[in-house]
Nucleic acid binder design. Structure first.
Lengths: 357, 357
DNA sequence: CTGAAAGCGCTTACAG
DNA sequence: CTGAAAGCGCTTACAG
């Protein structure tokens, strides 16, 4: 499906529509020129008599006038829009970021447009090409992407073209493409979690991590290991277990861990909340109560962890704020590449009470 | 925050952008007129010599030309876009529908735009007004909405204005606004579930339903009751329990139910999968195994029910297809109000084995 | 099959 | 403070 870059995408069978009231109509109804009507409708325009503005506003209201954004955009050169490329909107992680984008875009008077890319870089290239037509102020890339090095180069090239046209590109997620980035603070969050657990008296963690090697999983593990090393906590080699990134995968891994029970083990860290819930079940089925004796902590705080008992300690990555920050980056000028990262918030709940000793 | 309908929303501080190659540039590079270039780029245009088309396509490719969608839209009158109003994208139920919309829109050569409305009708009115500026081909409303009767009337009025301009309005969800609707088959799905359970030998269900009176909850209960009545299954009065729509809410309700244990109870139906998972926990904690003796069934099949053991019987509402169908409704002509509804799919898993008797 | 011209609905210098 | 005019980048009859 190699689309010729020059091929057009007109005529999708979409019918032409009649339009509503136009600036001309408003001007006529108010008895002024189009130019004046345009100025009266622009809240930032200075030189307009309030009498005329009132007349124009009144006429516009009566006619239900809405400015034609396309016409405006062909005049001004760009659409008041940010385009978001998201791998899969059904992933709650992405949905949270997207939510932040929508909110912030709305607050900034922009509309947000989305295109799915199904994790494939080749898809993204196609989508970027399509979106360039809309002349959005910015494109925001979120979610993970996988593809060959060649594809990656083509994607960067297509994005570069877009920036040469004056567009802005912002990444919301991992810091791996050469553009402004609103970072999802995985590494920092994992470190903060470990530091907090240390403060609560925990000393010997086990890790349940996904068995695939995603950037996300790697950053979580890096953060954990970094903080543990710094604080002098020991992570035994056999206390790092790989498992499928599901509740059941983590259940099995944790069940095995509970049988072996490494000597000083006092807390199990799972790479996601969903996995942590599997860990809790495995502990229960092994006759243990999470938080009593051995603690449990998750990561991401995006699924309904408030629903489990006892409450699951986790890390809030402020994903909605990441999305909002991406929009802000897109709207502010910049000379060189920028990077914003929020402080993640460790949320201590019942699964990691302070240890008595 | 009553926005004057006539007030403009220009000048959000968004900078003007330079643009890329233009049709003029392509025409010049190919040595033809703008008109010819335009036709050559239009795959449906008949009267173009293939020699010229080749030259133009080549030039466009070299220049990285992308047609300006805004200019095209001001010429043709409408944007190749569907606008989706969604109450909260973080709700997996909505995310699934939205996913279907994005896919189908992409396949139809349209882009999809989203605006959040936070469940409030007044918000939706504001958003519809804003979106009208974009002249999208259609607006798709999804998710639940709450608001006064007055607000509801204003919303319908604003939407009517939009349809008068030639726009199309489609609902993806419950059948309660006077527009084309892609129905989420809750009622039908609940009936089908009960029929299937009947076939498997179940005769005495208990119901755990949300304690608030949403349209969704009502439709589920209606479907259950209808099928049960039709099949001669009895639902005892004290076997319908209201509970908060969370795992824990359902847990408590089910725990109470297990203590009382209505005489012939053989299956517990929960209004959502999340609630069903709470029911399963309560049963376990009461020393029972879900599916052995008493069955459990959820609804929606949207959360990761494949992760629980035994697998949870549920109903797949085909939400992505609902989203896709909404786009299709938006693109096809219609005289009067239409309504499409898919057959939901009952997914039988380990929690409801066939009963021996 | 191809080109010159008009027009879509707006905004923005440029003159008053 | 107000208006006439030009221009944004396209598409589409209308003549060749």
């Amino acid at each position: 499906m190699t689309t010729d870059p020059a091929t057009d995408d007109r005529s999708t069978g979409v019918p032409i529509r009649p339009s509503g009231a136009t600036l001309r109509d408003v001007a006529d109804a108010a008895g002024v020129s189009k130019a004046s009507a345009s100025r009266a409708l622009d809240p930032t325009s200075q030189y307009v008599s309030s009498a005329m503005r009132a007349r124009v506003l009144d006429a516009a209201g009566r006619l239900g006038y809405r400015p034609n954004a396309s016409a405006r955009a062909t005049t001004t050169g760009a659409t008041a829009m940010v385009a978001v490329l998201v791998s899969d909107i059904r992933d709650p992680y992405n949905a949270e970021i997207v939510h932040g984008v929508i909110e912030q875009a709305g607050a900034s008077g922009l509309v947000a447009t989305f295109a799915g890319t199904d994790h494939a870089i080749d898809d993204e290239i196609r989508v970027v090409r399509m979106l360039r037509s809309l002349r959005p102020h910015a494109m925001i890339l979120t979610g993970t992407r996988s593809g060959s090095t060649v594809s990656r180069a083509s994607l960067e090239e297509e994005l570069a073209r877009y920036t040469q046209e004056g567009g802005r590109v912002v990444i919301a997620g991992d810091d791996e493409l050469p553009f402004d980035t609103a970072v999802v603070p995985r590494r920092r969050g994992a470190s903060a979690l470990v530091a907090e657990l240390f403060r609560l008296g925990y000393r010997s963690p086990a890790l349940i991590r996904p068995d695939h090697d995603s950037a996300a999983a790697r950053r979580w593990e890096d953060g954990v290991v970094e903080a543990a090393g710094r604080l002098g906590m020991r992570i035994e080699h056999d206390s790092v277990v790989r498992a499928p990134m599901t509740r059941d995968g983590a259940y099995d891994a944790a069940a095995g861990l509970m049988v072996r029970r490494p000597e000083h083990l006092d807390v199990v860290l799972a790479a996601t909340d969903t996995m942590a819930i599997g860990v809790m079940s495995a502990m229960r089925d092994a006759g243990l109560t999470p938080g009593t004796g051995i603690g449990v902590a998750g990561f991401d705080d995006v699924v309904g962890t408030e629903d489990v008992t006892p409450g699951l300690t986790s890390v809030d990555l402020a994903l909605a704020r990441v999305g909002a920050a991406a929009v802000e980056l897109a709207l502010s000028e910049s000379g060189d590449r920028r990077r914003v990262e929020f402080e993640p918030r460790v949320v201590v709940r019942g699964t990691t009470p302070a240890r008595a000793d």
